[in-house]
Design a protein around this nucleic acid. Structure first.
Lengths: 344, 344
DNA sequence: TCTTTTTACGCAAACGTTCCCGTTAAAGGC
DNA sequence: GCCTTTAACGGGAACGTTTGCGTAAAAAGA
């Protein structure tokens, strides 16, 4: 079953004109007489003519669509970021094609292949938790393909990047817990490959040290899938609770880590914040309704999406190669609620 | 800054062959000698040749991509459904282009225009809360464009549809509340234009009547934006609580309605389920962590997405027009937790 | 009235593919 | 040794558009 669209040829044939005349009439060229223009325009309207974007893309060597690769759209941060991306792209007449890596490196490579071969004009990406090797992106980038990173960036690739102040976010969260009297703060971290994990770990560590405490490796557990699997969070927390000095507070470095952490404590009957305080990165819009309500570090996801898209469109639409790249660092918001209150 | 891809012509020129020979060699045609094939294949691999899908689309009059229109991707149900859509589309080599209507009719029409003009091969849609008039979809459908509805359907358009048993879901939820001793059950409903709202309202009403109660209009409040705006939920609940007989339980007909309902009660200091019980439709994966944990009616979102996509691809790939359409009704899952327990 | 300018349009190439037709030369049949 | 077959490849049209260039007729200038 196929859907036959009407073309410029149909108009030309019906009106006894050439395709060039019709094309020019539709584009309101000065070379066409007002009478012909009117005739063409009216007929086009009547038969509901729409220019074929595929043909245009082929001619102009651009598709007016951008690709987005994120790990998961069923994740508040990313769905909000995508809303930001869409809002800008939509305004500028660009189409957004979304792919999910599901935190898999292999899938990310395939997605990229697919998107690049789909003739997208540029790419927005937040790399998967598994991604260590960036050569798939580097290859494309080196060949002049516009790429902008957001949130999870590849340091080695020289292009625009939009991130949040992860260091400060983790620092402030840790400091908040310290100020609230917690002494043994553990760090539930995401994939060790990710830029954000490293930055957040740095902030956590610095806060401890500024408070006169020493950083202990046993107090940091990495979750390779960023908390996507409950089992990895469970294993990490099992290890924390089997330490001789059980942590009295936890800083969780990602959305799923934070909620799965809460789920763990709930299932084990461990009271939050009485027995262990919790503070984590999250963009869920109902952390206030959780039990206990969650203290979170919130990212300006929508704005990040917008900014990244603006930068990408700049790259795409620039006449000459760009060599000066932006490295935007946006502020985070701390929202203090019940889960991080004093233990006693 | 543009990105020049390598074409069949480049290969032909480099190897001193014609484009037709190269094309055939790449497609492994019997007309080409093994030696030439090997040569072409190796060179193509070496310079990383990828066929230009735009050119293919133009030639084959199909883009191998499908459009999806939903109200919001930052909504658990839809993001899960999209995962289902993506899983099937990906397997079959189709691309998915997602658009959000943000529950706006106007935006839905624009999105549709845009997608249709982007040469998608078919459309999956769950209509916006505002949509009353389906002529924009009917026009396309009448012209032979493949469309499959899921969740929120247009009854008047004769094509495949995938929904859940909304009637039974609402019936069972209401019955559960009745069985738990609640007498005055209100219905917080979505947009009155939506098919799902009508079906759920019907189930709610039938459950009341089967229990010997009479349906009262004052016990149903519609939220035109489906709960997207907290204010509309607030206004609806304000009206319920100002009734002379205040409801002792509420059935909420959509994700945002359910959570905003909980948010309202929390802000007003109304205890759930002690003062008022709550049960609602929701696909959030952390309703168990809410305070109180939410009793929900959960939709098989992923499966719905998969099924709808399979049906759409059938439509697209069918040689002859299809006249027999499926009307799939999937079962819902009731998850009973704290929020719906007995009042006293 | 003849030349020049302007107006209004058509022709054809191009974008990257595929595929229907040739066409050439070697191989095979007798 | 001549005709037919077959293997292996090239030419060119087509998909829908835009656009540089050419050109006829009309208008303007002399």
């Amino acid at each position: 079953m196929k859907f036959e669209a009407v073309t410029i040829k149909d108009i030309a044939k019906a009106l006894g004109l050439s395709t060039s005349t019709v094309s020019r009439a539709l584009r309101d060229s000065y070379e066409i007489s007002p009478a012909t223009k009117k005739q063409v325009l009216e007929y086009a309207e009547q038969i509901n003519y729409r220019p074929n974007p595929i043909a245009l893309s082929l001619k102009e060597k651009r598709s007016r669509s951008i690709g987005v690769i994120v790990c998961e759209i069923a994740n508040s941060f990313f769905s909000q970021a995508i809303n930001g991306i869409e809002s800008i792209a939509y305004d500028k007449g660009y189409n957004v094609i979304i792919s999910q890596s599901h935190e898999s490196y292999e899938r990310e490579v395939i997605d990229l292949q697919y998107l690049a071969s789909r003739s997208i004009d540029g790419l927005l990406i937040s790399v998967s938790a598994e991604t260590e090797d960036f050569s798939h992106l580097k290859n494309l980038h080196d060949r002049g393909f516009p790429i902008v990173f957001f949130d999870r960036v590849a340091e080695s690739i020289h292009t625009h990047k939009v991130i949040v102040d992860n260091f400060k976010g983790a620092y402030d969260a840790t400091k908040h817990l310290l100020d609230n009297g917690h002494q043994h703060i553990a760090n539930l971290a995401g994939s060790p490959h990710l830029s954000i994990t490293k930055e957040r770990l740095g902030g956590y560590r610095k806060a401890l040290e500024d408070h006169g405490l020493i950083y202990q490796e046993s107090y940091t557990e990495f979750c390779l899938h960023g908390g996507m699997l409950y089992e990895e969070v469970e294993a990490a927390l099992d290890r924390f609770t089997s330490l001789k000095q059980i942590p009295d507070a936890i800083v969780a470095s990602a959305d799923k880590l934070t909620t799965n952490c809460l789920r763990y404590f709930k299932s084990k009957g461990i009271k939050v914040p009485e027995e262990v305080a919790l503070m984590g990165f999250s963009n869920l819009d109902l952390t206030d309704l959780l039990s206990p309500s969650l203290s979170v570090v919130k990212q300006p996801a929508f704005e990040m999406g917008q900014l990244a898209t603006e930068l990408l469109l700049q790259l795409i639409e620039s006449k000459r190669p760009i060599t000066e790249f932006e490295y935007k660092v946006l502020p985070l918001e701390l929202m203090i609620r019940e889960s991080s209150l004093k233990s006693k």
